[in-house]
Design a binder for these strands. Structure first.
Lengths: 248, 248
DNA sequence: TCCCGTATTTGATCTTGATCAAAGCAAGAT
DNA sequence: ATCTTGCTTTGATCAAGATCAAATACGGGA
């Protein structure tokens, strides 16, 4: 599961994704110099806890490679994943003392980290960075609310189709091509993790994946490699408004 | 349902809640002067659409009185409420062109509005405001993620108990007293709206409310007035970690 | 006060997805 | 090559909640 690191850097901004997504929308040289001095990298193995809900937060940063998950667990063990962190996503809470949720490495993960205190100073002294972070947080909030529709109202089949569609879209977004006929990608999550994300049991996930395969909407190579022969017909299964509109 | 307007203003800051919650954490006189010139009030009747998903956004602002709801609807009519906006909550999207979700007046609602463009200028020129908005948005994000746990994993009974507990907490937060033995309040939502919020049907909501009443955990005066004789025992029904921890 | 329209409650049945249980499979270890 | 071990798939059964269909209660006018 150790894919070669993908380089997501802004063309002008070196190799650390945070400079591109979270900070460097205008590439001010001063800010970059500060960030260069602050950044460190850290890696985690698949399954490892990155932090626990309630932990003191020392760092913020972003995902360089791999997939991390935010999740919550109830006393009796019921678990709900509340966010997926893919490469280039921001991790952490400027202005917060403690982590609100558990963070778990779903695959092997590399993070690019900055000590929180100096990063917060940077935010407070640089409106463009605060604005950029606000924008990203609003995106996350919209995504969370889309997910609430999925969790509250969609059927198991629609949940699976939606999840696959989101991954597929993210895949093709990275590799320029907008053609959207056929898409191939690797599932970053186990059946159990998918269940935790979708508010289902792993058995139901397995059954519905099989059902989509039987229906010819997806093809499987092994357990994790997925081919979507016709993206549009998968979209029909998601329950989403298929025509235009705003992406989440 | 037209309760007398509650005044939520910061003691130093006049009558508009936005100055307290979103902007006026330090009460800079210049900012307040600008905001005073911008603000207007607008009222909506219960049930009225405040805006539709996809609408051009001209304003941002905050709820002064009443309850508004963010919601999404699928083509076949399934609906999921994704946020409740209570007095002092911020409405709108600095930096966004269009509304991501429908906004509906759940009760009669009064909003305090500012034109978006000048408000955005204020944000960009005043780091403390951008930071404050970021903080508020992070709070909303945490609340949305708490809600994902509720939607994905909680039972109908736990959902109802959680919802009532949240309202009760909000009620007592406003009226100083932290005693938390007995709480009384009025439901701001119909059974149908509660169902849309909780990812249930209105029948299931009705049945579970009746069940909680039979169990002596709540009392009803009419349909909408609720008394919680012992808040702690209602909390036991929410499935939440009851001891300490961080509030959402 | 009575009437009407809407919201709520209640009941009977049906469906979906959870739960329990048992194989199946692939990859690494012996 | 065979035996683990840890997923994943599949099957049978069950329960929670949805759906369909009536009652019933409530609130606001005439």
């Amino acid at each position: 599961m150790n894919t070669a690191p993908k380089t997501l850097a802004h063309s002008d901004c070196g190799d650390c994704p945070i400079r591109y997504r979270a900070v460097c929308s205008r590439c001010e040289p001063d800010e970059l110099a500060v960030l260069d001095q602050l950044k460190t990298y850290k890696t985690y193995e698949a399954g490892q806890m990155i932090c626990w809900a309630g932990d003191q937060l020392q760092f913020v940063g972003s995902v360089v490679d791999g997939v991390a998950a935010l999740s919550q667990t109830m006393e009796d063990g019921r678990r709900q994943m509340v966010g997926l962190l893919l490469p280039s996503d921001f991790v952490g809470r400027p202005g917060r003392e403690t982590a609100p949720f558990d963070v778990i490495a779903a695959t092997d993960v590399t993070l690019c980290l900055f000590r929180k205190a100096p990063f917060e100073e940077l935010i407070n002294s640089t409106p463009s960075i605060a604005t950029r972070l606000l924008e990203m947080t609003l995106d996350e909030l919209d995504a969370a609310r889309e997910w609430m529709l999925l969790l509250g109202r969609k059927t198991a089949r629609e949940k699976i189709a939606s999840f696959l569609a989101i991954l597929a879209r993210r895949e093709t977004a990275l590799s320029a091509g907008q053609t959207m006929g056929k898409v191939e990608f690797t599932l970053p999550l186990s059946r159990e993790a998918m269940a935790d994300y979708l508010g289902l049991t792993l058995e139901t996930v397995s059954r519905q994946v099989s059902a989509l395969k039987r229906a010819g909407l997806i093809e499987l190579q092994g357990k994790r490699k997925i081919t979507i022969p016709d993206f549009a017909s998968l979209l029909n299964e998601t329950g989403d408004d298929t025509d235009g509109g705003m992406p989440a």
